[in-house]
Structure formats: C-alpha cells, structure tokens
Amino acid sequence: MKALVYTGPKEVEVRDIPEQTPKDGSIKLKMKYCGVCGSDIAISLGKHPRAKAPLVLGHEFLGEVVEDGKKFKKGDRVVAYPLLSCGHCLPCRTGNPHVCNTLRLIGIDVDGGICQYGYIDEDVLFKVPDDVSDKAAAVIEPLAVIVRAIHQSNFKSLDVAAVIGAGPIGMIAGMMLKHMGASKVFISDIDEKRLEKAMEFGMIPVNAKTESMEKVAKTATDGEGVDVLFECSGAEIAAMEMTSITRVGGTICMVSVPKTPLNVNLRDINFKEQHIVGTRVYTKEEFRQAVEYSAQIKEDLEKIVSHILPLKDSAKVFDMIADLNYGTVKVLIDCTDI
C-alpha cells in the first residue's frame, strides 16, 4: 500500500509499504483523510525528540471500517483517540493517562494514518455522526485539543477572550469560544489571509505587525484586559505580552509548546493575581466530547480546511505549508487518491 513516510531530517516520501499486521482487538480501516499537524512538521524537520525514521506520519485520521468488528460495522466512519499510555506510572494510576510519564502517540511513536489502510484497536475508535462530512470529521482530533484547553482555562459564557496565533489550533480555539458563548474573541497573527478567515468566524482580528493586541483588547474592555487568553503561537513576544493583555484575576492557557524557554512577566502574575495553566492533549472523554461538538460546528470545521492534497502528492505538503503564498490554514491528505 501507499504511505507518506518520514525517512530522515527534511526527507519524506510516498512509499509502497506492506500492510500492517492485525493485533488482537484491532479492526481494519480504509483511511479517508488525515490532517497535517504542527508535530508532523517537527517530525519532518527531524526536530521531534521521539519520532524515528522510517515512520508513517499522521495522527488526525478519519477511516472507514472495512469489515465488521465487535463494536463497529463495515462502512462505519471512525476517528481514533491516538494516545498510548503505559497504565502504570503515577499519572496513569491517578486518572491522568493523557499525561502519562511515557506518553506515546500513533503517528509519532508508531506508524500513523497517512496511508491507504491501517489496523487500529477498536477501543480507541469513535463513530462519526452521520451528518458530519469527511472534511469536518478529519478535524476532530485538533478540536479535542481545544476542548481540553477550554476546560483547563475555566472559561465561562460571556467572557472576553484573546487568542494569540491564528494557525489551525488558534482558529479552532476561536471558533469554539464563539460557539460556547464568548462575548468577544480577539485573535492576533501576522498572516493577513488567516486573519481574514478568522473574521468569517466572527472573531476580531488583530494584525500583530501593525496593531497591539494589548491596546485593542484594553480599549474594548475599559482598560481591564481580557478574562481568558489562549497562547497558540509559541512566539517569544507573545510570552512577554500575554500577562499585560489579561485582566487582574484572569487566566492564561498555554496551548502552544515553545521549543525553548521563553521570558514571561512573572511580576504581572503576582501583582494581578493571574492564573497560568498548561494544556497538552486531551482525555478520552474530551475526545468523545469533540466528536459530539463536531456535529454542532460542522460548517465551521469544513471551512477551516484550506487545502487538500492527494496521497500521491503528499510529500509536497510541508513545503506548501512553509510557503506563505499558499495561505494554508488546515491541510488534509486525501488517502484515497493514490
């Protein structure tokens, strides 16, 4: 079968590989779409600390069940909770396997879903609602990331929110915040095309090249600042500014994972009694909730998909994402087009 394989730093190629060997409890899927994530970009550059070549990429996949299993029937469309936990460490023993001390993921530590077929444990699969399109379903995994982030932030309806970074994760964060009742959602980026897209979802765009998020947000909140801020960029300047954008007693949720330690204004954290919280992935229950939410915001999830590449051309995907002229937001690989 065909698969997109990471073969070494800055080297990916579409290869013919053998089909996976089924394991007890697994079911065969025909892969339909797979989203491309920031972690896939890191792997392709050789910068992911765990991913080892050769590796089939992709953890944001939608598949169609090929044959009846114990829980699913042939033809069911399913998405996979891709986390692999040890079950023995302290986080696992205390109900937090999503932050297992040795957490692994499909598509990072074992072969992933940018391929024609795969065998996946039935216990981690969720059936996609019938009225959710294939394109929207392929965005459920990053949606789960935001479900978790919003839970971590203790966001409340009518809160004023800010999102720094209008990439796929930031865009989905803004969409969900609007859906859950935010009174205003400000979103900043330096990419004008992404900011135009954010406006379509009802967000208030801030071009970080020409505007100050702090000034815009405080002008709109009588000088107080936003109730909750989601840092989705990983940029050094964002780490320095996020405390000034957020009000006294407000919450900052770190959704991005900076590659190096960044400077943060800890004095603001003290003097404004702010809360800063991290978020990494999602629980299995939050993944299930994301599947349900997908039916409620299906039109927006479809719109966030800016480009679809056929599997046969998927080795070009990372160059395309890096080229700002393409204006990519969320890119999917069509695993049926070989």
Rank of each mutant, 00 (worst) to 15 (best):
P142F: 12
I169L: 12
K73S: 15
L29W: 10
I308W: 10
R104V: 00
L177K: 12
F186I: 07
P18L: 03
E122D: 12
H307D: 14
M176C: 14
G63P: 10
D313T: 08
K312N: 13
A239V: 01
E231N: 11
R247V: 00
H48C: 00
G8S: 08
V291F: 06
E19H: 07
R194Y: 03
L55N: 08
Y282M: 10
A53Q: 07
A208G: 13
G234E: 02
G234A: 10
G118F: 02
H98L: 01
A220F: 09
I252E: 04
S39F: 12
A208H: 08
N154W: 10
P168F: 05
N207S: 08
D134H: 09
A220Y: 09
G174T: 11
K330R: 11
I297T: 08
K178R: 15
V317P: 06
A295I: 00
M31K: 07
Q152M: 15
H275D: 03
A208F: 02
P82D: 06
D313F: 07
A208Y: 05
A149E: 04
F230P: 04
V206S: 12
L45Y: 08
D131V: 02
K272D: 00
V66C: 10
K178V: 06
A290D: 02
Y81D: 08
G249P: 02
V206A: 11
V5P: 14
V255D: 07
K10A: 09
G249A: 05
G250Q: 01
D134S: 09
N96Q: 14
V79K: 15
H59Y: 05
D337A: 15
L143G: 05
L55S: 10
I333A: 04
R194E: 05
L332G: 09
E19G: 00
T221C: 02
C100K: 03
G250T: 04
Y33F: 15
S294A: 14
L4V: 09
G63A: 09
F186Q: 14
K272A: 06
E299W: 10
A217S: 05
V12Y: 00
G38F: 08
G95D: 09
A162K: 14
A315Q: 15
V14H: 14
N263K: 12
L45V: 05
G250Y: 02
T102K: 14
L332A: 03
T336G: 07
N270K: 04
L177W: 06
E141W: 13
I172C: 06
T251E: 00
G167T: 10
A238M: 10
M1W: 06
S212F: 13
R280E: 11
E60P: 03
H48S: 04
L229G: 04
T210P: 02
E273Y: 13
A161Y: 02
A136T: 12
D159W: 02
E122T: 12
N207R: 14
V79A: 11
V145Q: 04
I169E: 08
V79P: 15
F126V: 11
A162V: 01
K303G: 02
G181K: 08
G112T: 06
C335L: 05
P168T: 12
D40S: 13
I164G: 02
K272T: 00
A235R: 14
E141Y: 03
K303H: 12
I308E: 12
